[in-house]
Structures are given as C-alpha cells and as structure tokens.
C-alpha cells in the first residue's frame, strides 16, 4: 500500500531529516516528495510505499504522532486511497 505523509507548520530545521529517519528505520520507501513555504508556513507532502515496512501501520503512525509533538508541527500519514476517492471522478 502507498500512503501520503503531510507535514504542516512553522518552518524549522531538520523536518525532512526527522520524518525520513522514521520512514527509513521502518523500511518505508519515499517515492515522491515536494515542499513549499508560504508566508512562513512549511508544507511538505511525501508519497511513500509501505509494502515492505517492518512494523505495523499503527506503529508508524504513532511514531509520526510522537515526532509531531516534539517538533510542534502537524504530521499525518494516511492511506492514499482517501485522496484519490475524494478528488477523482
């Protein structure tokens, strides 16, 4: 399965490093990544392949939640189906 990671919040150093670290540690492969900074708000979207992950999806989400609290940004990981369902006819 593929998932989308979104990170939104005030820009700071090490965001991509920290998120990528969690993904890498759990064997999730980053397929695409894009980021913008608009009016000081950092927005990053990653498309990740979870077919080979070494942990349960819930654990991966918990790790992202923990990081979200540490760095004070909103970090979500969601199955890509939700976006495809809502935005394509």
């Amino acid at each position: 399965m593929r998932a989308v990671v979104t990170v939104i919040g005030k820009d700071r150093t090490g965001i991509i490093y920290n998120v990528s670290k969690i993904l890498s540690e759990n064997n999730a492969n980053i397929e695409d990544i894009s980021q913008t900074i608009m009016q000081g708000i950092f927005t990053m979207i990653m498309l990740v392949d979870l077919s080979e992950i070494s942990c349960d999806f819930t654990e991966l989400k918990d790790s992202m939640d923990a990081l979200s609290k540490t760095i004070g940004m909103s970090i979500r990981i969601q199955h890509e189906d939700i976006f495809n369902a809502m935005h394509s006819i």
Partner: peptide
C-alpha cells in the same frame, strides 16, 4: 495520484 492542492484540501477539511 491526487494533486498537491487536493491533498492539502483533504487534510484541512479533516483538521479544521
């Protein structure tokens, strides 16, 4: 794959 703005729209709908 959904577009960048669509992804942000969905996240905003759920979050806010």
């Amino acid at each position: 794959m959904a577009l960048y703005k669509d992804i942000i729209e969905t996240v905003r709908m759920i979050d806010q």
